[in-house]
């Protein structure tokens, strides 16, 4: 899935970043800038400015958190999937999101921040994740709409990230994108089947689209004018295309898909602009967006508490595995002695 491009500073992991002089060495800085300008890649052991490291840790860990929190709204329907085929697809998909989180945490770990430190940031509420997952999934079609629209929006954002300047992040994104392509298609296909089904099924799809459409547009983050960190991200090659540009691309791609599906996108202002050669769309409710980002959406508390509980409940399991390993090592040492 996907992290929105909002640049909300959170403090996840920053205090643990390896000591790099904050007054950057001009020679090293120049070499770094030259490599970025040449569209080169930065690898973990390379010198990098402190701010670049911090921004990456924040962006990658937010992305990872979004993946694992994103398992919850869809996971909500695994036990109730209406056919065994859809159940299997949904398990595989939610499981993939977990995998994506894992690849991303691993990429962030190469910057000197441990997964535990990142999780601590999430669990304490300091670190952010995509606000789309703070909305409830209220009918089965939500699963399809998340695949079609949320993952569709994700793909828009992730494909350029495959070329991002930080090597481990770009490699993780290549793997994520390969797997993600099934997610959008399965969602759209599930909706197609429902739209060809009963009246009740079609109503479910329209209801899900009505609830999620505006949330998806907001996923791309605040307008470029209000997104100060974006410019720095673009400069560093860790953000390739601006929020508004991606959002427009998404709208343009989605309108014809909605037509084929036979659903109405809930925006009276949505129409083709011949002069711009793009679709115009209405005003996004940024107040609501920021409310949710700041923790006051409909499901923020449930999502976070559920992640914290899973982590805490799993502590004894993780401890047991490690304790056993240590015992085995001690036994092996004794035998060798």
């Amino acid at each position: 899935m996907y992290t929105q491009s909002f640049s909300v500073p959170d403090n996840a992991g920053q205090k643990n970043v390896a000591a790099v002089p904050s007054t950057e060495n001009p020679e090293l800085m120049a070499a770094f800038d030259a490599r970025i300008d040449a569209d080169g890649r930065i690898e973990p052991q390379d010198w990098m400015p402190d701010a670049y490291r911090k921004t990456l840790v924040r962006q990658i860990s937010q992305h990872a958190h979004s993946e694992i929190v994103g398992m919850l709204p869809e996971g909500n329907w695994i036990s109730r999937a209406p056919s065994l085929k859809r159940k299997a697809i949904l398990i595989a998909k939610v499981q993939d999101e977990g995998g994506h989180g894992l690849y991303l945490y691993s990429a962030a770990e190469t910057l000197g921040t441990s997964r535990d430190q990142m999780l601590e940031g999430l669990h304490s509420g300091k670190a952010k994740y995509s606000s789309i997952f703070n909305y409830p999934t209220l009918n089965w079609a939500d699963v399809g709409v998340i695949g079609w629209l949320v993952d569709g929006a994700a793909i828009m954002n992730q494909i350029p990230l495959c070329r991002c300047s930080y090597g481990p992040y770009s490699r993780a994104m290549v793997r994520v994108c390969k797997e993600e392509s099934f997610h959008q298609r399965q969602g759209y296909e599930a909706l197609l089947v429902m739209m060809q089904g009963t009246e009740a099924q079609r109503a479910m799809v329209q209801d899900a689209v009505n609830r999620l459409w505006w949330k998806c547009l907001a996923m791309f983050g605040p307008p470029d004018a209000d997104s100060p960190n974006s410019a720095q991200g673009m400069r560093w090659g860790i953000k390739r295309i601006s929020n508004d540009e991606l959002r427009q691309k998404f709208v343009d791609a989605t309108v014809p898909q909605a037509k084929v599906l036979g659903v109405t996108l809930p925006d009276p202002d949505l129409k083709w602009n011949e002069a711009r050669q793009h679709y115009d769309y209405g005003q996004i409710d940024w107040q609501e967006f920021w409310n949710t980002v700041e923790g006051n959406g409909p499901c923020n508390k449930e999502r976070l508490a559920t992640r914290v509980k899973a982590h805490n409940d799993g502590q004894w399991v993780r401890d047991a595995a490690l304790a056993y390993t240590r015992k085995q090592q001690q036994r092996a040492q004794k035998e060798a002695a």
Binding site: S106, E109, R115, A321, Y324
Partner: peptide, 19 residues
């Protein structure tokens, strides 16, 4: 192809298969 966390080598092999 990437990395992961595991208590020991045997477990890492299994986890790698699944991940």
């Amino acid at each position: 192809c990437g990395s992961l966390h595991a208590a020991d080598a045997a477990q890492a092999l299994h986890m790698a298969r699944d991940v």
